[in-house]
Amino acid sequence: MAEAPPRRLGLGPPPGDAPRAELVALTAVQSEQGEAGGGGSPRRLGLLGSPLPPGAPLPGPGSGSGSACGQRSSAAHKRYRRLQNWVYNVLERPRGWAFVYHVFIFLLVFSCLVLSVLSTIQEHQELANECLLILEFVMIVVFGLEYIVRVWSAGCCCRYRGWQGRFRFARKPFCVIDFIVFVASVAVIAAGTQGNIFATSALRSMRFLQILRMVRMDRRGGTWKLLGSVVYAHSKELITAWYIGFLVLIFASFLVYLAEKDANSDFSSYADSLWWGTITLTTIGYGDKTPHTWLGRVLAAGFALLGISFFALPAGILGSGFALKVQEQHRQKHFEKRRMPAANLIQAAWRLYSTDMSRAYLTATWYYYDSILPSFRELALLFEHVQRARNGGLRPLEVRRAPVPDGAPSRYPPVATCHRPGSTSFCPGESSRMGIKDRIRMGSSQRRTGPSKQHLAPPTMPTSPSSEQVGEATSPTKVQKSWSFNDRTRFRASLRLKPRTSAEDAPSEEVA
């Protein structure tokens, strides 16, 4: 009796068929016929556990003709996506030579605008209408194809895939403007070719909807975003200037109206006075309405000098805001240009540092100066060695804690006790272990408590650290204090090793 083939788990290929790579489910599931010992083939499952149809090819690079078809379809799909992405970037994010197409579109729109203006002049109306009709045909074809291509290429973005995504893309403001202008152009052409009475009025009214094509030149909205950011950044200043200017306008108009309503027919109503105030304070000055009385002229002159300053403030605020924003954008561009080279330089330096163990090129690091100058660790070890030599091999803490019996001779020589300023008595072995921070803190506390006492003391002649007598400086308080830590004499004296002298005989010792 033939044995059933062993159940295979995992992703390994079956024996005897090495080139074939078959994806098997996580659990080997066989058909009921196979479990019962029949000759049925096992049921194939996909990666998600769903059964595959009987005629479906197995996924994998070596699955025969199905694999070749899959490779061809995958390559075609990649080319399709690449083309779609390229078209989308050309239309929505132009760079380099892609601006040539947008310059061509701008020339078409500008020519249409010029011809629309010439069509309103009686001398050039006939020729402009003929040229404009031909140009409209060209623009309908160009913009119609462009609109379709834009909607198709938007599928390269995830949020615009599918018919719902394309509809979302078509609802964008600039796409809506394109659609309105396209419909208006078709209506103008249809009305112009019919030759009816309505054609002339339709051409004159709907052609100027094509002015909206100038708005579509900035599809990404960079200028509007820049203007919005400047207004938002200086909103408080703008609101303040406009508010005060509006108050000056209504008060000036009302007072001039009261002064001129009886003697001047131009100011017969408050609305006429508001019109005069707006034209005057905005420095336009049509001259259609002028005050005639001396009181009205004085009020107009005073409020004009006051109001023009507030009406001119928004222009200066926006101008300075634009300058600052442009400078910030230039700085951001320079930062973006330098970020990648800086990151590459840091990575290269780290690779060199991690692979080169000698690091002989590091001549400006802490390790280099640590090898030249005595390190703080060596100074600490030197302090501890000196203290243990004086205390008979014991550390200062051990000397303080060691009990001394009554009447027993002390094995240590008597030492002079010292007192730290602002604290109780402490171990004499710690007097010379006072660090730089303690010395600086002690000097600052003395300056806070009594700076007036220092200038009363007789001035001391500054001497070099080499000429100081070591026996005289029994305490860190003898170090000359200065008002600034930048004094080199104080810094050098604080680094010197001060020996400890006994109370009975204080021989001067120098520590090399």
Rank of each mutant, 00 (worst) to 15 (best):
A342G: 10
A190D: 00
V230G: 01
D218V: 09
K337T: 05
F104S: 05
T283N: 04
F110L: 02
E336Q: 12
A304V: 14
L274R: 00
M1V: 14
F179I: 08
L258R: 09
A241P: 06
I308M: 13
V109A: 06
F311V: 13
S265C: 13
L212R: 01
V103L: 08
A252D: 14
A342P: 07
R168P: 07
W275S: 01
W276S: 04
D272A: 08
L107W: 09
L249F: 14
G38W: 13
Q210R: 00
Y160H: 09
E92G: 12
F246I: 11
T283I: 02
F335C: 04
G287V: 03
S153P: 08
V248E: 04
D272H: 06
V141E: 11
W276L: 01
I284F: 05
T278K: 03
G302R: 00
E328A: 13
A259D: 02
G296V: 00
S185P: 11
E336K: 07
Y286S: 02
V109D: 02
Y286N: 01
V100F: 08
Y243N: 13
K337N: 04
R338P: 06
T290R: 11
I105R: 03
L9R: 14
G285S: 04
G222V: 02
S269Y: 08
V230M: 00
E237K: 02
G285V: 06
H292P: 04
A170D: 05
R150P: 09
A190P: 03
N344I: 15
L299Q: 12
I279M: 07
N264I: 05
T280I: 09
G277E: 03
H102L: 03
Y160S: 05
L227Q: 00
A315D: 04
A263P: 10
L249P: 10
F198S: 01
D262Y: 05
D288G: 03
F322V: 11
P291L: 03
P314T: 03
V90L: 15
V256A: 05
Q327L: 08
L132P: 11
I250S: 06
Q332L: 14
A252P: 00
L226Q: 00
Y160N: 06
E260A: 02
L209R: 01
E260G: 06
N264S: 10
R207G: 01
R338L: 10
F251V: 02
G221V: 07
G165C: 07
V256F: 02
I284N: 02
D288A: 00
I250T: 10
R207P: 11
F311I: 09
E260D: 04
I317L: 09
G296S: 06
K289Q: 04
G287S: 01
E260V: 03
Q327H: 15
L274P: 02
A199P: 02
T282I: 08
F322S: 10
G307V: 01
H334L: 12
R82L: 14
S273L: 01
S119C: 09
P94H: 05
G316A: 04
L295P: 09
H234Y: 10
L107S: 09
K236M: 05
C112W: 00
G165V: 02
A170P: 09
L313P: 12
Y243D: 10
S229P: 03
F335S: 14
I317M: 07
I279F: 01
A271P: 10
I244V: 06
P341S: 15
D218A: 09
P341A: 12
G96C: 08
G155E: 05
W275L: 00
I317S: 15
N264Y: 02
R297T: 09
L226P: 00
L118P: 09
L227M: 06
S41F: 14
L299P: 00
D218N: 11
I148N: 15
F169I: 07
V231A: 01
L249R: 05
A300P: 00
P173R: 06
I284L: 02
T278R: 05
K333Q: 04
V151G: 12
P341R: 15
C175W: 11
